[in-house]
């Protein structure tokens, strides 16, 4: 009997997780299934989903975030976990220059994860951060190919795939990621997207935000305010001057 009960609780818990988000449904189910269901609901609510919002109205393109990231992880020369692209466009006198800080989008549907042949990379259940275990990774570079954001690279020192992990070691200590910490203009906001009271959730709710390559269906957890999505390869934009400076070894966007 005990076993059967536990099974049914577990399956309800699964159901609630999948249904998650809709408070009304959660409340209704909680009324019907007293203690276990309540535990499940509160568990879903307390589990953070970390995200970042980059407010480009404030960004000055100073690269402090890139430098802080390099220093934090001792990223080998020629590789970048975090970088800032410059987008120049227009014909004089109608011109603009904007900045696009880039990092791993910690996608809700990360295309890099299912291609890994050795289960060396996964999206953490507890906070949604996509991580790599460099001691398991064989360096086959399949995930590097699969990432539509070119966020991954092969670390020549470890021989494993590497990328931004939202400074997991800092976040675990209650600190913000290094790039957020160093930003001179408070352009980067880090926080829990599952907490409607967090600064990031409020900012996203009250501003027009975009994500990169939304059409890929990856559902990024890095949001931008006022981002310029211009790309020199877009066929319709070829008549106007567009230059993207990636500030990476790969001079062109992947």
């Amino acid at each position: 009997m005990v076993d059967i009960n536990e099974d049914s609780i577990a399956s309800r818990r699964e159901f609630l997780k999948q249904a998650g988000g809709t408070a009304a449904l959660g409340a209704g189910a909680a009324a019907a299934l007293p203690s276990a269901a309540q535990a499940a609901v509160s568990e879903t609510e307390t589990k953070p989903r970390y995200g970042m919002l980059i407010d480009l109205r404030r960004c000055t393109g100073c690269h402090a975030c890139s430098v802080a990231c390099k220093a934090e992880f001792d990223v080998p020369l020629g590789s970048t976990r975090s970088w800032v692209e410059y987008v120049e466009k227009g014909n004089y006198p109608t011109v603009s220059r904007s900045f696009l800080p880039r990092l791993c989008n910690q996608c809700t549907n990360p295309p890099c994860v299912p291609v890994c042949p050795v289960n060396a990379t996964w999206k953490r259940e507890e906070d949604g951060i996509v991580v790599i275990d460099p001691d398991v990774c064989i360096g086959c570079k399949y995930c590097i190919q699969a990432c539509p954001y070119d966020a991954r690279f092969l670390n020549p020192v470890t021989g494993a795939a590497d990328k931004c992990d939202f400074c997991l070691h800092r976040v675990a200590q209650g600190l913000v990621p290094s790039c957020v910490n160093t930003c001179i203009a408070d352009a980067r906001i880090f926080g829990d997207l599952n907490d409607p009271e967090s600064k990031i959730s409020k900012m996203i709710a009250s501003n027009p935000v975009t994500v990169l390559r939304q059409e890929m269906g990856t559902e990024p957890n890095v949001y931008y305010i006022n981002a310029d999505h211009s790309d020199p390869r877009q066929p319709g934009q070829r008549h106007e001057y567009i230059r993207v400076d990636t500030h990476r070894r790969n001079q062109e966007r992947a």
């Binding site: 990774c137 064989i138 360096g139």
Partner: peptide, 9 residues
């Protein structure tokens, strides 16, 4: 061509 092989693992 594996990164791990080239890194000595």
């Amino acid at each position: 061509e594996l990164g791990s092989f080239q890194a000595g693992n």
